[in-house]
Amino acid sequence: MAQSKFDPRLVRRAQDGDGLAREVLLRRLAQVFKNYFRAKVGNQAIVDDLMQCALIRVHSGLSALKHPDRFKAFAMKAALFELHDYYRGRHSPKEQTYDTQILSEKAEAASDRFESTLDIERVLSVLTPHVRRILELREYGYKYKEIANILGTTETAVKMQVKRAFEKMRNVFAEE
């Protein structure tokens, strides 16, 4: 009978400290991760980073996997966690540049009074659900092109929606 490359017996051996079994298992899994992240992200350097992080996640969590026959789901979750951590990290503070901090300080200095009184919910209420969806997807970490794919539209259309939203909000900012 044909056997899976990720046969539970191989997983069990890897868990039990068989160095070669672990090496074989992770090498096979690396190919899955590589194909997956390449399809999702494209950029080779990022693909390599994600692949390494996902492999480390599997490597460090393998001994705690109670059911070797669930290795596929275990690996899948490792990939999803890494992919979505990566999406989130695109816009996280650690990704912001020093320039952005300086810009923020200058903006704060120029609009100190305004900042403390801005009613965010009121500003957001002027947006349509569609635009809010776009903004939320963008803050989740997706790029305009990816949002366009998710929503079945074009990147240009998405960007135009965001620009219009900005103009609407700008008017509200002016009233604040």
């Binding site: 996280s92 923020s104 200058k106 903006a107 120029a110 305004f114 500003v123 903004l135 900012f173």
Partner: peptide, 16 residues
């Protein structure tokens, strides 16, 4: 412009 930038930044930070 500074007000728009600061406001937009706050909106984005709020959603995040």
């Amino acid at each position: 412009l500074a007000r728009s930038y600061a406001g937009w930044q706050q909106i984005c930070a709020h959603l995040r």
